[in-house]
Structure formats: C-alpha cells, structure tokens
Design a protein around this nucleic acid. Structure first.
Lengths: 349, 349
DNA sequence: AATCAAACTTAAAACGTTTTGAAAAAGATT
DNA sequence: AATCTTTTTCAAAACGTTTTAAGTTTGATT
C-alpha cells in the first residue's frame, strides 16, 4: 500500500504537495498534478482512511439505530429506508453504520456509537412523541436529522410529510363523495405520525359535521391481519351502521380491509370505499390492488435523499433551522373509492 | 475530551505510562495504575478510536452486505441475522457495518468497504454456488466467514447446518410413515443450500425406492403465495396421483401448502402431511400452525454467535481450518405429519 | 536590473494513540 | 559499598494524513 511519502519520494516531491495534488487544490500546477495522479495510479495509492479520520476528527460514516419491533411491516419499510439511505449517502461519499437497539435504554445504542467515534451524525426514524433520543443527541452536541418529527415546534432538522394533511385530505375526498361514516384504521398511537394523522382525521370529520362512532378510529400494527380483524369487527358491529368508507394508515391494512369486505360479499367501491396512505413499497403496489387503491402517496424511497442531504449539510455546518422540510403526500384517486352507497346516508350518532 | 498527554501532565507521567496503565499492562505498578485510572475517570477520558485505528491498522468493525432481493421473507431472515450478529459482535466489542448491494457487480460493495478501510473482515450469507465473493475476498486477503458454504470442499471458515441431512431426514421421516409420493418445495436453486437440499431429497427418495414425479421438486421463492400456488398445482395435477406429503424449504411455503390443502378440503395430517425446515423466526412460529408443524429446526438466531466468534477468531489469527462448523438441524415431530392415507400407496411411476 | 506579485512548493506541526528501546529507580545480593 | 537484578518509567518513533506558515520559483512590471 503506497503512501503519500512514497509517491513523493518517487517524484521528488513532498508529501504535502502530493496530498494537495490528489485533493485537487488549486495552488498546485497542472503539470505536477498530472504527474502525481499518474504515479498514484501506478503505485495503487489509496488514502488511509484512518489517518484521514484522525486528522479530520470525522469518520465519514453516519449511524442509524434500528429498534427491534415485533411487526412484520417494519421490516419492509426498514429495508426500503436502508436501501434508499445507503444509496443517497454513497453519493455523498459517506457510509451508513447500523446498529440494533436491543430494548432497554432507548439511547444506549446511540451512546455506544458515539463513544466509539464511529459516526459523525445520526439519522433517526419512527419518532415517538417527545422522543428521548432527541434530547440526548442534542445535549451530546451530535448532528442528527429526523425522518418525521416528534413535535410540531421541532427546532431540529427533519424531513417529514404532513401527516395531518394525509388524514384530513382523505376525509375530505370521501366526504366529497358523500360518505358520512368514515372509519380510520390508524397506526400505533405511540408514533408521532399516528398522533398527527389522528388529529387530522378528527378535525376533518368535525369540520364536515361528521360524528365519529366509538371504535371507528383504531390504533394497531400495520398488518394485513390487523386490517382484516378490524374491518370485520367494524363491518359487523356499529349497531347496524357500519362504515361506508375506510381510511387506512398503510396499504397493508387496506389489503386486510379488502379481504374483509370480500368475505362479507361487499364490493369495493360500490358498497364500501377503501383508501390508504401508501409508502410505495416495491412489494406492495397500491396500483396492483383489485380494484386499484386510492391513496395518499409519499414514496419512502424519495424521502431518503433529502434526509441524507440534510444530515450531510448539517455536519458540514449548515444552520439547522434551514434544514426543516415538510412536504405533502400526493392524492392519487384510483378505483377503490366511489360515491357513498344508498344506505350510507346517515352519519353516526 | 481528555487525551493521554493531558492525563500524563496532570499526574507527572508520560503518555506512554498512562496508555499502559489504562490498558492493564503488567509492568506498571499498582499504585500508578490506580492513580491513572482515577484521573482518567475524573477527566472523562475516552481513547480516540481513530488514533487507535491508525496505529493498529484495525477498525474494530466488520462488514456485511445485503443483497436487495425481491422476496419478502428475505427481510425477516435478514432482520433476524442482523439482530443476532449485532448482539454477538457487541459482546466482542466489535460493530457491524452494513451496506446494500445495489445490483450489478456482486463484489462492488465489498471492494468499496475495503477501499475505505472500514472493516477488518466480512460476514457473508446466502452463498450461491461457486460464489464469486469468496475468491475476491480470498485474493484481497481479507478475513471472512460464511454463514453457509458454497461448496462441499470449502477451505474457508464457515458455519452451516447440514442441508443435505435436512432434506434426507425429512424424506426418511415421511417414508417411515408410509408415504410414497413426497413432494419437495425447495428454495431457489441459485443458493447452495437449496442445491444441497435438492441432493438430499433426491438421494433419500432413491434410497427408499421412491421415484420422483416430474414437477414434484420445485424451486421457487420462499413465500406463502408460492407455497399455495405450487401446492394447488400439485394437488390438482400429477395425473390423479397427487403428493401425500410435502416437504417445504421454509415455514412460509408450508403456510401456503396448508391453505391450499384447506381449500381442497384436505385435512392435515389425515389426507396430506406437511413439514418444513424452520429458521425459527419470531413472527412465524411453526408451533402456532394448526396443526402444529413438524419441522427440521435450526434457529437462525443461534447461528449468529458461532459466526461472529469465528470471524473474530479469524481476525485474531486463528487457523481458518479450525473455524469450520457443520451442525445438524433438530427434527421436531408435531401434528402436521401422520401415516400416509389409504389412497397413497402407489409411488409415482 | 531591480522590484513585485503570483504561482508553486515545502518543512514542520498536528491529530492521539501504541510500541520500541533505553534509562532510571528500587530492591536484592555479594 | 558495590554490583547485579528486577521493576518501573520515559523519550522518541511510528502510523499516514492534512494544514499552517514559510519558503522558493517564475513571470511580469517598472
């Protein structure tokens, strides 16, 4: 493994000049630069990253901690994020170090990584309300970016979709179609995005003068089975006034709802409308549903680039206040939503 | 952040002595050691990992590359391995760096990590036959351990279960129960474990004098849907001689087979026996199947410790030849296998 | 030809640790 | 008291890079 010194020796230059030449500094002459480049190539030179790390105090890596949760879907979204971030960071010459949070202390894994000088910053996802990791990292003075945010008045860098709008716009679409009894199968209320969607749903329902029946708003894991279970219960119960429309916090839930409707010989969208929020996971295409699913769409994959970029900018010294992004999901109306059925005219009491 | 020099200054000692004291070298007096320890504690000393890395040439991290594949299950097994390895490595004061292979060149991601001095070694999983990564890493002189192996005469460190035996013992169990027409839903023949299982199945069938009908041995992705599809086809086809037993390469496939049987009003195990190989994933418990699934069981989680240990030993200088482990899966007979049905007496032609 | 600026190069310091080889201190033996 | 061990400590080198501050060329301008 050639070093700067060796190249310098070969060409009669100092390591300093060689370093500058290779790093494209302007004060080295074109001729010297070319000679150095050639020699470096010939000798198979590769900068020793550990030496660079020592002198720069940076590792060139950023960390992400995965919480081990028990729900299947987490894996899929996680893989999606992992791949997206990996690619986005690679473009910025940075690598992703992953660790698994084995329960207990929510910040233990972060502390460990910091203690070992492994990373220059963190990407946090799936924040809960008043997420304890945020204070920890803030106090530790470590750069971090959230995918999502743990409170409305967040003062740290984040990238998130407007989850309030996701739910509110869904309600609006369905209300415009004449639906009065709209159920909302939400995610675990533990997560801040679920809290926002809950508020969006409730506010929008109120705005349209639609009461929300007990049990019409649920919080459960995003799985096909959970969607099925809850749809079965709602379609059977509600004192003879089942929902005429379902908003699902994930397409997996919608899959379950569709199956429940089918089991009850209800057709979508004639008897019941179904829509969902769609992370656009490769194995779960809303467009492949029968009928094609109406969604609020926000590809998880697309969030990765801005998240990665924000973190790199933050590490590079950009003002955190400039690194807050709120985008809107796109409303994609397909075939799973339609006018409310005849018998759906009365709102819940 | 205190450094060795600062501690030395504080105590009137040289950095060298401080370093030795903290690393527990025997030639430093107990009194000095205690003074140093106290001062280090008081000043909040933490060794700069990058400096250590520079001088030792080691990063204290090992790498794993995830192939982005399109099958759902991969995520689950991957998460399981990720968590297990993470924990096992943490115990040995080592961290796991993960990268995603974005297709193209199978060794590109490995090369990249090596070029950036990120890791001291690699863990490889899901090997294919004559896996190109192996030659690459061997030639690069980088320590690596396989979970699995790409050929029988492997000369590198690996940890694997005996996949030949997995299939052979399954056949043996079913043959002993009187089954003559035993189908095998195998994984993609791309992977070496599937190749071994295929051989185990074919050899065992031959040993018991049981012909294998065309189509009775399939290779497909390990999903519920694939299991269902293949079971439906096999149960309907085979010229009036459907299989009386199914061996599945994964519990997910078995789930699909069970559903197919149910759809055809066949009861398990009275009409058809079903068994599978079980990685013991937390969300897919063979024991929770109805009826409880007979399996060859080899918890993926349990493989992580030996794999991690082998890699650390290898990096530490242990002879690679000593780091080859072949274990056997455990045969767990539950309720999904039973005697062959009356009409199952004739083997395939 | 002298002066000045611009362009280029370098020696040395820095990053913080580990390790080597030598030296000093302490203790034991004559 | 002198010598020899053994124990303990230290100065310096090493790891390979980047950066600072100080040089030296080169070329243009007076």
């Amino acid at each position: 493994m050639a070093t700067l010194k060796e190249i310098g020796l070969e060409l009669g230059l100092s390591p300093a000049t060689v370093s500058r030449a290779l790093n494209g500094f302007p004060e080295v002459s074109a001729k010297t630069r070319d000679r150095v480049r050639e020699a470096a190539e010939r000798l198979g030179y590769r900068a020793n990253r550990n030496a660079q790390r020592l002198v720069s105090g940076r590792s060139g890596m950023v960390g992400m901690i995965v919480k081990t949760r028990a729900d299947l879907r987490a894996d899929q979204t996680f893989m999606e994020i992992l791949m997206g971030l990996s690619a986005a960071l690679a473009d910025r010459d940075t690598d992703l170090v992953l660790a698994v949070d084995q329960g207990r202390d929510p910040v233990a894994a972060y502390r460990r990584m910091l203690e070992r000088d492994m990373v220059d910053g963190f990407i946090l996802n799936a924040p809960v309300m008043d997420d304890p990791r945020i204070n920890f990292l803030r106090e530790a003075g470590v750069p971090f970016v959230l995918h999502g945010r743990d409170r409305l008045d967040a003062d740290y860098p984040f990238f998130t979709i407007d989850n309030y709008a996701v739910a509110a716009e869904s309600v609006q679409l369905l209300a415009a179609l004449g639906h009065k009894r709209i159920a909302f199968l939400n995610g675990p209320v533990l997560y801040s995005h679920a809290v926002r969607r809950r508020a969006g749903y409730l506010d929008a329902m109120a705005r349209f003068g639609l009461p929300v029946a007990e049990g019409a708003l649920t919080h459960d894991e995003p799985s096909e089975a959970a969607g099925y279970r809850q749809a079965v219960s709602l379609l059977a119960g509600q004192r003879g006034a089942p929902p005429t429309a379902f908003i699902c916090s994930s397409t997996l839930l919608a899959e379950g709802v569709m199956r429940a409707a089918k089991d009850r010989r209800l057709s979508v969208p004639e008897d019941v409308s179904v829509m969902a929020h769609d992370d656009d996971l490769p194995l779960l295409r809303a467009i492949s549903f029968t009928p094609a699913l109406t969604v609020t769409r926000a590809p998880l994959r697309e969030a990765c680039i801005p998240v990665a970029t924000a973190l790199m900018d933050l590490i590079g010294g950009t003002d955190p206040a400039e690194l807050q992004t709120l985008t809107r999901a796109e409303l994609v109306v397909r075939d799973s939503t339609g006018p409310a059925p005849r018998n759906g005219d009365t709102p819940w009491p």
